[in-house]
Design a protein around this nucleic acid. Structure first.
Lengths: 343, 343
DNA sequence: CTGTTAGCGCTTTCAT
DNA sequence: ATGAAAGCGCTAACAG
């Protein structure tokens, strides 16, 4: 493997000059540039990142810690991260933790041994992890969290406006003319579902609609749960004409249940989901849902991290909140009873 | 950041001893071990990978070049790779090329600049890429290809037994009692489809069934193509009672077409796909299909690569061929005319 | 069993 | 505008 010395020799110059040429630092005459360029090509020189980082203290590597890349959400995130990272001259090391506490910790150690310049993490929110992450942040390792919050804010963070997303979803149903709207959620007390619940509640409030506890079904947020929830909602004395599920899996489960009962979606019942997983576009009917800007979240995370690494950027932790987008597809329509909906 | 010298000082020993301790090479007395262990903890020492790889010429990094991580196939592959890599002490740098020739080349350069110890690649098979890859292989960079073949065999490779998979799929249909089985494929001449076509043909042959050219529909391998193909097959004077599509997208398209024509799958028509994409398990009805052992492919690729990097392993390129598995779900059944099928 | 020392390939003053 | 030389932190060979 050719080194800088080979290039320097071939060009009849010194390594210092070659180095300056490579890094665009200091002066290099035109003739030198040309000779160096030629020499590099001739000897097939490839810089050694190891040697470089030994002196610069930077590796150009960033780590992305995520529970699972099969999940389309994380996969999109990873893409967003990788793309922007490449633009900014970084390579990304993704590591998968399957949501296991010890794997998070272990993976972070491995990443540190590889001297990553920074970390992007979407971690399970366990106390132990939070503690470890806090320690890491204090140690000065640049990092940005996606979604999670750290006790005293010590790192940059990117989140999405799920509250607003949930409101938009509910508003959409309301503007279609629905007056009884079911909510399919996990525990209302769970942090993740919190914002979505509030969005639903406030949308109802603002529209002057009553908040009926019977219309809130708390279930497991998967297909089976969604099915069960809809069953529960439809056996109510006054069943809803629409349902908002706080994730797509549950929404899809609800649609499935409806199909099995010969309830037509959207003519008999409107359904809205949340997340925009890719199945959502292919369900029958295609699901109206709230999309999080996954790609952009990744890009923003990288920007935050890169600035932090470069020493640019605010001295205090930054928080970037990204908008969600309501994607209207075919699972929502005005209720039967009120043809024409609003307006 | 503490260095090995700090540790050595603290322990009252020399860096040589500390290094041996860290690498389990050479002798280190028990008392030394203890003091070093303590010293490391006290100063919070973390080895510098840069310095290490500068001397060892190894980074512990491997690159995975793939067109797209959103695709569940690649995602699974990536998981398989990452898991096994971690076990064998490697970290993986995945880079996405979106199937673009120049991005493959560029990404490989970036990876080389980061001094990866080896590469795992699933590339688009263009001549230019093949040439570049061949050059790379000759340069001595350990690499393993997944799927693709290089002209004179220069690298390790992992493939799957698609021929056998296609035979199994066809045999399944035959054993169910089907006698007229349509094939939905891309160009029979295309390399990828070749093995699958042959598997279909040979299964028919062995069963003593005629190979009817009219039953082979060559179309684009997507949903629309699958739809069109089925339309074509069903307007035949003697339409088939089953169809084998060489990928799931086409199979799903066929099922969709059937649904639109009120043809019941599987009672009126059996359909088999190939790939086992995750939609396959969720289609209506769930699709019988041939699964490739994606996870295992990744693991095997890493093993091959790691051996190559370690200098272990055969001196000539190795090829590992993995079995496919027929996943029987609900899109196949005996034909109406022959209740009970075989036996 | 342990210490010494020469690089590894590059960046970065400091001279020139 | 360019060259010389001192490290960066570690491993490996060699001496002891």
């Amino acid at each position: 493997m050719a080194t800088m010395y080979d290039v320097a020799d071939r060009a009849g110059l010194s390594v210092g000059t070659v180095s300056r040429y490579l890094n665009d630092s200091g002066y290099v005459s035109q003739s030198a540039r040309e000779r160096i360029g030629a020499a590099i090509a001739e000897v097939g020189y490839v810089p050694s990142s190891a040697a470089r980082s030994l002196t610069t203290k930077r590796t150009g590597l960033i780590g992305f810690v995520v529970s699972d890349l099969l999940n389309p959400f994380s996969a999109e995130l990873a893409h967003g991260i990788a793309d922007r990272a490449a633009q900014r001259g970084f390579c990304v090391l993704n590591s998968v933790t399957e949501g296991q506490e010890d794997r998070v910790l272990q993976t972070v150690r491995v990443l540190r041994e590889h001297s990553v310049d920074g970390l992007i993490i979407t971690p399970p929110e366990t106390p132990r992890i939070k503690r470890q992450l806090a320690a890491l942040a204090r140690s000065g390792l640049p990092m940005v969290l996606i979604g999670m919050q750290l006790r005293p804010r010590l790192t940059d963070r990117v989140t999405t406006a799920t509250y607003e997303g949930a409101r938009a979803a509910t508003d959409h149903l309301i503007s279609l003319g629905h007056r009884r709207i079911g909510l399919i959620t996990g525990s209302r007390r769970a942090k993740v579902a919190m914002g979505r619940y509030r969005g639903y509640r406030d949308a109802l409030n603002v529209a002057g609609l009553p908040l009926d506890d019977a219309l809130v079904a708390e279930v497991a947020l998967d297909r089976a749960g969604g099915s069960a929830a809809l069953h529960q909602l439809l056996t109510l004395p006054k069943p809803p004409t629409a349902a908002f599920a706080v994730n797509d899996a549950a929404a899809l489960g609800a649609i499935q249940y409806a199909a099995s009962r010969d309830i037509r979606v959207p003519s008999d019942l409107s359904v809205v989901g949340f997340d925009d997983v890719d199945l959502a576009a292919h369900s029958v009917p295609p699901l109206t849902t709230v999309a999080q800007p996954k790609r952009q979240m990744g890009a923003v995370a990288v920007d935050l991290l890169a600035d932090r690494i470069a020493g640019t950027g605010s001295s205090t932790p930054v928080e970037r909140r990204l908008e969600c987008e309501l994607v209207v597809r075919a699972s929502t329509a005005p209720p039967k009873s009120s043809r024409g909906g609003s307006r």
